[in-house]
Design a binder for these strands. Structure first.
Lengths: 251, 251
DNA sequence: GAAACAAACTTGTCTATACAAGTATAATTT
DNA sequence: AAATTATACTTGTATAGACAAGTTTGTTTC
């Protein structure tokens, strides 16, 4: 019993190494890493607060805060008198997050590819300036990316990026979707809003997607914030026959 | 300054009276009450932690937890070194709740009407039984309702209701939308999932909506739970030119 | 064997104290 | 007058200690 606990912990303590982030956040991150790596499986019991206190040399309130916040976030489940457990994975809700279509396709066990149609550095026009909350003529990137699921075109992504917040956006590898990772690195998107509509694609868009002109498409316009700063807007266009949005609410 | 603070607080302290709930929860509730009653307006500054500590005779960590959780919930906004403020009310997010189209239309200042196309009591077929989690031949209601915004058809609602959970569903007034209120009364819907797609309506649906056959429509299929019991499924179909979904995520 | 009790855990809450970090204002210097 | 500094606030984090409350397990008692 003690042996299991220590073997669960020893590598945990390594990951808490010093960094500018507060301790409770580092504890949270270390636990998430254990879960995401698969080392701690769903429904499995995690070390108790006192065990973590001993192993990490931090106070119990700090561990408690980390565990409580992870519980609020649905990562863990706690029961007084019993212990703390890894929660079952939630059904993925594409609507409630900044969803990365590459990850979604991968989650379905399919292969994702992307093709950069065009990227230009330009001055924001009035509409773009409005949407991004900058002045007209502010420097921006305009990118058009075509996403494939199993070689079949599934989504056109038209993205406008605030160039001063993501100066190297055009230097990323769009085939491998590192552009998305780059955006998340320079400006973690924590907030956003969507507008979902059913529309008819333009002739050129139909050609890109390989659909006929009468096929309805799902269009998502999205604005994304990072700490109160508007970072990017995107227009995502997908054929109705190949793409659907799933979402859930409540627990 | 001190006078304002005390006048903000005195009634707060009254509401913290003893109850089985933990102190931080009572502090949260008292603050929410102040905000909901309109006594504390949006953007207005609330008393500092130390002021609450003095007024309520609790420790600062307890006040801190209450304020932090309210901040996480988007009720308050805090800035280190400055203070704590009442947050602006969020934009309404139709996607994340059981949305009532009548309320949404009313919120836009438009008039809503509904027309009951058909309602029948029947035995669940296989698909309906699957979706509602009941046996085939379980008693259900099938209702088709046409919703109007300013005399213009905006949505076809096809609803299947578990008759044993909502036995008087067919006795409601569908023009006035009391059927929705009835459902919420007998089985408050706290959980649900959506599937959003862009589709082409059938000819009869086009006729009901008054659109031509090529117009893309937004279709939402929704299953709704009330305390782990599946209550109702709905298929909502709206012309793309008249209807859009709005949603947001994050704080 | 069954019931009652005791001990040893777990998480949940609360306090008092301390220091760090950010911000605004007043006082001082230049 | 402008820039700098000191100060008095604010929130943010971290600790040690304490008790409450719920659960499990083992022990005692009947």
């Amino acid at each position: 019993m003690v042996d299991t606990a220590t073997s669960m912990m020893d590598s945990l303590s390594k990951t808490i190494e010093d960094s500018p982030a507060p301790i409770y956040a580092r504890v949270k991150q270390a636990i998430c890493q254990k879960i995401n790596s698969g080392e701690w499986q769903a429904d499995q019991r995690v070390p108790s607060e006192s065990e973590m206190v001993k192993a990490l040399s931090v106070s119990r309130m700090t561990v408690n805060r980390a565990l409580r916040e992870l519980t609020d976030e649905g990562i863990l489940v706690r029961q007084q008198g019993v212990g703390t457990f890894v929660a079952q994975k939630k059904a993925h809700s594409a609507l409630f997050e900044v969803h990365n279509i590459a990850d979604e396709i991968a989650a379905r066990g399919h292969t994702h590819k992307a093709q950069l149609i065009e990227i230009t550095r330009a001055k924001a026009n009035m509409e773009e300036a409005m949407n991004l909350g900058v002045r007209t003529n502010h420097s921006i990137f305009r990118a058009t990316i075509l996403h494939f699921e199993n070689e079949l075109p599934i989504q056109i992504e038209e993205r406008v990026v605030n160039a001063s917040l993501a100066p190297d956006y055009d230097k990323q590898d769009f085939q491998l979707n590192t552009a998305y990772d780059y955006l998340m690195k320079v400006a973690p998107m924590t907030e956003g809003e969507h507008l979902v509509e059913a529309v008819i694609a333009t002739p050129s868009e139909c050609e890109l997607l390989g659909i006929n002109a009468s096929e309805p498409c799902l269009q998502i316009k999205r604005r994304t914030w990072s700490k109160d700063k508007l970072v990017t807007t995107a227009r995502l266009l997908s054929p109705g026959s190949r793409f659907q949005l799933f979402g859930h609410f409540g627990r």
